[in-house]
């Protein structure tokens, strides 16, 4: 088993040998920081599987076992046949041909009209094994046994017509199945974005004056899509050289309040207002809906302020509102701004 003392000695020896070459990089004493990992620790965390299947645990599973597990643990997101796009992109849609399996290139990837699926893209079977084992199911990652992963993978591959339904997938035959992966020859690494010394495939112009350009607007956002990201007027700082475009529908404009004047429910609660007032309808005092309807408009702010601070009676009935002198200035301002803001948005963004 693991021997602490001998390992430390070995580390010290290695470091002392290495120290001659890299003395400037490792300050003295650093070899005592951190400790050797144990075998148990390594096997608990070192779960990755490489394309050459280094790291693949032994085990096996068949298509029928896979279907059972799939329906229980996977189908809710991916659909019974792995073709759902409700939650995630489809795993399989049937766009793989026998010829693809023969050549190792999925021809449909050249067709922009064809939706791309996992099995159309992934070149390496190890990727799927590794990912399912470490990260699936979605809400209970790392709960599957190796045998269950083999079975699930067999089921998925059968859905894609890559293997027959009588396949028992195992560590012994996985490389044979890899040789049938339909896009196994579809990946390339001969591009400039991998190595620090990579050459760019595109380089821009450096023309400075009277450059040849096509100023035709070929694409812009249609008007109906301008509010798909909410009201852009609320996504710019309130003090800015530029206003945000008002993209909320007009109905929303009728009730929308500026961000700082958002309904101060917590303030109303903390300040004791909700003991007598509710959002809609008379309680002890009038509802906030009635107050906001009557006093909408900034010109009513000063009046409401003094009513809240001093209290009063007679406006809404005989029960007096007690004075609220303890409200701090910010809270008072927030409440009054909110009360008067109901129909006071027009021109807010101008």
């Amino acid at each position: 088993m693991f021997n602490w003392a001998s390992t430390l000695t070995a580390v010290a020896m290695v470091l002392s040998i290495a120290a001659g070459a890299v003395a400037s990089e490792l300050p003295a004493g650093i070899e005592t920081i951190g400790r050797p990992a144990t075998d148990n620790e390594l096997s608990a965390w070192d779960i990755d599987v490489r394309p050459d299947f280094l790291g693949l645990p032994p085990g096996s599973g068949d298509v029928w076992q896979g279907e059972e597990i799939w329906l229980e643990k996977c189908a809710a997101c991916h659909g019974d046949f792995g073709d759902s796009n409700e939650v995630f992109a489809p795993i399989v849609l049937g766009n793989i041909t026998d010829e693809d399996i023969e050549t190792g290139r999925v021809a449909a990837l050249q067709d922009p009209a064809v939706a791309r699926t996992t099995l159309m893209k992934v070149a390496t079977l190890s990727t799927l094994w590794d990912y399912i084992y470490r990260a699936m199911p979605w809400n209970a990652p790392k709960s599957l046994t190796p045998d269950e992963v083999y079975a699930l993978l067999a089921y998925i591959l059968n859905l894609g017509y890559i293997v027959d339904e009588d396949l028992v997938l195992s560590d012994a035959n996985i490389d044979e199945v890899q040789a049938r992966m339909p896009n196994r020859n579809g990946m390339r690494q001969d591009h400039g974005l991998w190595s620090l010394r990579g050459e760019p495939d595109v380089n821009g112009d450096t023309c400075e004056t009277d450059c040849e350009v096509d100023l035709t607007v070929s694409s812009s956002l249609p008007d109906y899509a301008m509010n798909a990201h909410g009201n852009l007027a609320e996504q710019v700082r309130s003090v800015s050289p530029y206003a945000g475009l008002w993209t909320a529908p007009e109905e929303a404009a009728q009730v929308a309040a500026p961000p700082v004047a958002a309904a101060p429910e917590t303030l109303l609660g903390q300040s004791g207002c909700t003991g007598c007032h509710q959002m809609a309808g008379q309680l002890v005092g009038p509802g906030f809906d009635a107050i906001r309807a009557r006093y909408a408009g900034a010109e009513n702010a000063a009046y409401l302020e003094q009513k809240i601070v001093n209290g009063g009676a007679g406006v809404w009935g005989g029960i007096p509102m007690p004075p609220m002198p303890g409200l701090d200035s910010d809270t008072l301002q927030s409440i009054v701004t909110w009360l008067t803001a109901a129909t006071d948005h027009s021109g807010e963004e101008s």
Partner: peptide, 15 residues
Amino acid sequence: VDLMPDGSHRQYTSI
């Protein structure tokens, strides 16, 4: 992985 017009994918595009 970055799909190219010829149907191949660039893998390990990083920079």
